[in-house]
Design a protein around this nucleic acid. Sequence first.
DNA 1: TGTCAAACATACATGTCATGCCAATAATTC
DNA 2: GAATTATTGGCATGACATGTATGTTTGACA
Lengths: 211, 211
Amino acid sequence: MTTSTRRGPGRPSLTERRKEDTRTEVSRVAARLFTDRGYDATTVEDIAAASGMALRTFYRYFRAKEETIAPLLAAGTRDWVDRLADADASLGLVDALLTSYRASVRHARTPDGLDEDQLRALLRLVGGHSALRAVWLNVYRDTEDSLRPAIAARVGASPDDLDVQLAAGTVNTAVRIAMERWAAGESSVRSADEAVGRALRAVATGGLLAA
Amino acid sequence: MTTSTRRGPGRPSLTERRKEDTRTEVSRVAARLFTDRGYDATTVEDIAAASGMALRTFYRYFRAKEETIAPLLAAGTRDWVDRLADADASLGLVDALLTSYRASVRHARTPDGLDEDQLRALLRLVGGHSALRAVWLNVYRDTEDSLRPAIAARVGASPDDLDVQLAAGTVNTAVRIAMERWAAGESSVRSADEAVGRALRAVATGGLLAA
DNA sequence: TGTCAAACATACATGTCATGCCAATAATTC
DNA sequence: GAATTATTGGCATGACATGTATGTTTGACA
């Protein structure tokens, strides 16, 4: 799952790599079709045809039609979690989260991402459709679990610790909310990473709950 | 949506009430079938037949097969949010959240809920199936939005305020995590409300993020 | 280089899901 | 009690998703 560009004697075999590449490729094709024609107006056969594969082959790469966009949605946070695990051990949790997030925005390790306009268009589509919204939430739910080991290691606790799990959930939710606000925003005055940064700093200080 | 038992000159017309009752009825029937035979082994026709309605009628009440369990999953938190809005204005946010939650556990206003064993069985089923998991996450995403007005009113801010939204998201996530941990737990030593109470108090004090 | 095995892609068939459309029945109003 | 409206049900249909069987590529090894 954690297929990043680096990795020395990495585990992901070459065939795994190719499979992952195909997934992101199809993901981009599908996102394009969805934003162009609409989600319901796009059949799986359309996606398969546009990706140059048979219907049955499509289902080897994705469990369901909605899942096609998952790789695109996950691309951003995945890199973030990777960097968090590698971040300077001397940093506090909040600083490490902020630093690694900023770094992942500046120079993403994976070329999977979309530019901001495409991502915004996709997120607006996601917000409007039930099945896609479910995938969006699922991606963040998975991120929550990915965050736990990284946070646990940093604070010297178990990933199964309630506090670790809550911290992962809180931070993760903050990022999701920031992204949703950014996507829903009228004008594109603020960039996505600025919105996320603000939200992270806010939860770090406790916000309304501390008052 | 907020069909509670009380309400003076309530908006929900009688026909709306009946519709809601039918939904919870079908919901219980479906949950029973799911936990008995398994989700995939249960067809929509099975659910419709067991509910005494035609297939076509079923789809007038639910958009999709998975959605059948949504009313059951939402029953708990809905009552909580209702009580939060009514809670003593002198209480601080955290205290109000805790008090209203405890109250909703003790004497639920709606008889929609399942007993703890049934709920636990359902949640374990939910965790194991992708489509059901999506509904679970969706229910909590909706709760997040329901919490916002109640929190906003209490702190004297707008529901669209970032801090309000983050507080709603954090609290909501804490409840979800607590429920998931409770459902996944080996023995039933702790009750669900105790788990939720612990999580709420933890996020109220800032937890790891405050350190 | 030729042969084999394993992994992968495609075709076909099938069952379920979900919805549009129209008829029948029940509820409501006058 | 007749007319109007809402709700339900049956039927047909297209799309989704998967099991199975059949090619087709790939790569190892003699």
